[in-house]
Nucleic acid binder design. Structure first.
Lengths: 217, 217
DNA sequence: CACGTTGGATAGCTTAGCTATCGATAGTGT
DNA sequence: ACACTATCGATAGCTAAGCTATCCAACGTG
């Protein structure tokens, strides 16, 4: 086990913790007080840390996601669904008021893009919630730009699916789905920051290079 | 104050907490034991809850962001920067190994897109970090799709900037920048989920409608 | 055959984000 | 004028998440 700790960079108590929580499968027992860990355990630990550190998942959520990966007979669509639910354990999917304005905006958007989206897709409620919040804050012009955001989302989704199609093994696909869904949001957000800077140069006269550089505060 | 509590749906102790933490400016004192709160306080509370609940910011980070909004003389570019730093208090921007593969991928991408991005743009480190993590997990095909993600990011950024251009007042612009940056990530993520489902219908034969519906677990 | 290590269980620690209590003061209804 | 209630500010307490530290019995290696 100390080898596992060393190879993964995760402390022994933390490894024990993940074992307890069921994120990491137990090693193969060679005796009552000894277990053997393989490279798959190292990989698993890396995945765990990625989900938690980069994806920002809670331990409990990561556990659910890993469970979905581990079930080889689960349909891929289900894995997608779990990953989607998992990605945000925030209250984003709390109760959205029935016929809220945001819900209507989402429905309009789906109509105008021609998307096929099931009623219980978590994105529906998430988007509705966010749009309601925009409205609460008096930022009403967002609706005008929704089609542009939707187009971007479709581009991203095509790339996501293309990445999955690289695999033939179902287990690999499941892992790609999860990793892509969870890490993808972080990647997209980062790319967005860079693009924002680039585009702002084109829109605003003063170069952003004039900003106080380095980490703030 | 109880009116403020009622109007905003935030409990009195929480309001006191935000006052203590400096997120909410004190009301106008009418005596040593009474203060008057206006509609701007209600709005402020809504903004606070939006940043924390939807954007997932910590209280401390929200405080920094609000501070940036409140400084009317701060250049807009600076507000952008603060919002960008704020959006992820995760360890996403921790030390990225010097010449990591991810950093190189990011540089390549910036080169091939022709973006102008300053060296200290937080997206650079974030993206590098995520790409390094992909590689750690053996998901190496991601690089192939980076240009597609970048194109989507540029679309999004154009819409972001267009939203800001709706305003002429600098304070309004600052708020739009912050709200758009923080809530925008959540919105984009939700749209992505929907687009994923739509696109997956086109790629995979079996309809996703066959998935277990409702909340998982 | 003794001693160091491991696994498992239990308990403790730390931070974030509220929440509850308290005492002094001041406006309010009668 | 006077009891009553509400507010403010400060302090202390609470809960959950995510580790971390301690303990003990069992093993297995020298």
């Amino acid at each position: 086990m100390s080898q596992l700790c060393e190879a993964s960079g995760v402390s022994v108590p933390s490894i024990k913790f993940y074992l307890r929580e069921g994120l990491l499968p137990a090693g193969e027992r060679t005796s009552a007080t000894q277990a053997e860990y393989g490279p798959e355990h190292v990989e698993r630990l890396r995945l765990i840390r990625a989900l938690i550190d980069i994806g920002g998942l809670s331990v409990a959520t990561a556990q659910r996601v890993l469970e979905a990966i581990d079930s080889p007979d689960l349909p891929l669509s289900y894995v997608f669904g779990v990953a989607q639910y998992a990605i945000s354990d925030t209250s984003l999917y709390a109760d959205v008021p029935e016929g809220s304005a945001g819900t209507a905006q989402v429905n309009d958007l789906i109509g105008s893009t021609g998307w096929l989206v099931s009623d219980d897709n978590p994105g529906r409620r998430g988007a509705a919630r966010v749009l309601d919040t925009y409205a609460d804050l008096g930022q009403n012009h967002i609706g005008e730009h929704l089609p542009a955001y939707a187009e971007a989302a479709e581009l991203i989704a095509r790339a996501d699916l293309a990445a999955v199609a690289h695999h033939t093994d179902v287990a690999d696909m499941a892992e790609t789905v999860v990793v892509g869904t969870v890490l993808g949001d972080a990647l997209n957000a980062s790319l967005r920051r860079m693009a924002q800077e680039h585009v702002s140069y084109q829109v605003f006269p003063a170069p952003r290079g004039a900003e106080p550089s380095g980490s703030e505060r």
